[in-house]
Computed example of a mutant assay.
Amino acid sequence: MNALPAIAVLCGALVLTSTPASAAGQLARHMTELSGAPQTKTMRGKLRAHDTAEYNIRLRAGQSLTVTLKTNQRSNYFNVTGPGEGDALFVGSRDGARYSAKVAQDGAYKISVYLMANAARRDERANYTLKIAVKD
């Protein structure tokens, strides 16, 4: 895969990179906290069928993470997975469109935005806004 990452900096503390979609229809976006909190970042994106957008953010134990999804598609959700975890801490299709908690351990947390299989099979699309807020 030809990787041509684009880098943007928010408030000197967050870096957002984007890689092109692979042949399998996966879309990945990565966000990493470099230093300091509080930080709030709002991303807008589009998904189609089996695309998945992934945002990674590095957090310290005790920081608060709040994630909110607004979308035009009823089958568009996000999950939050902790460092080294196989199972999601938050499953949007079960738990809703907002996650808020203090993180238990240092590390990279992954936020995956996706369409449910029913919408993906119908080749549906979603426009979404994902707001990620980190506080000490």
Rank of each mutant, 00 (worst) to 15 (best):
S93I: 12
V80S: 07
Q105G: 14
D106Y: 02
G86K: 11
Y109V: 05
G107M: 01
P83D: 03
V103C: 10
R94W: 11
G92L: 01
P83C: 01
G84W: 04
I111G: 07
F90W: 09
G84S: 11
L89P: 08
L89Y: 01
A104T: 07
V113D: 08
A108N: 13
F90Q: 13
V80W: 05
G86L: 10
Q105A: 12
N79T: 02
I111R: 10
V113Q: 09
P83Q: 01
P83W: 01
A88E: 04
Y114N: 08
G107S: 00
K110G: 01
N79W: 03
K110T: 05
V103L: 08
Y99T: 08
Y99V: 00
R98A: 15
K110I: 04
A101S: 15
V113H: 07
G86E: 13
S93P: 12
G92Y: 02
F90L: 12
V91W: 10
Q105H: 12
V80Q: 02
R98L: 15
D87V: 08
R98H: 15
F90V: 02
A104C: 05
F90E: 11
K110V: 05
A97G: 12
D87S: 13
A104L: 06
V80A: 08
V80L: 02
G96C: 04
Y109C: 08
A104H: 09
A88V: 03
V103W: 11
G92W: 06
K110H: 07
A97Q: 14
S112C: 08
V91A: 15
A97N: 14
S112L: 02
L89V: 00
F90T: 10
V113N: 12
S112D: 08
D106G: 02
V91K: 15
G92F: 03
R98I: 13
V80C: 06
A119Q: 04
K102G: 08
G82M: 05
G96N: 01
K102L: 09
Y109L: 06
A117G: 07
T81C: 10
G92S: 08
G84P: 01
A88G: 05
G86H: 10
Y109P: 12
S93Y: 13
Y109T: 00
F90R: 13
S100N: 14
A108M: 12
D106V: 00
N79R: 08
G86R: 10
G96F: 02
G84I: 02
D87G: 11
L115A: 12
S100H: 13
G96L: 06
S112P: 05
A88L: 03
A101W: 00
P83A: 03
S112V: 01
Y114G: 05
I111S: 06
M116V: 10
D87K: 14
E85M: 09
G86V: 08
A108R: 12
G84R: 03
Q105Y: 06
L115I: 07
S100R: 15
G82C: 07
L115T: 02
V91P: 07
R94D: 12
L115F: 06
A104V: 04
R94I: 09
A88R: 05
S93F: 14
G107C: 00
Y99E: 12
E85P: 00
M116C: 10
A117C: 01
M116A: 14
P83E: 00
G107W: 00
L89I: 02
G86N: 13
S100W: 06
S93K: 15
L89S: 10
Y109M: 09
A108D: 13
T81P: 08
V91N: 14
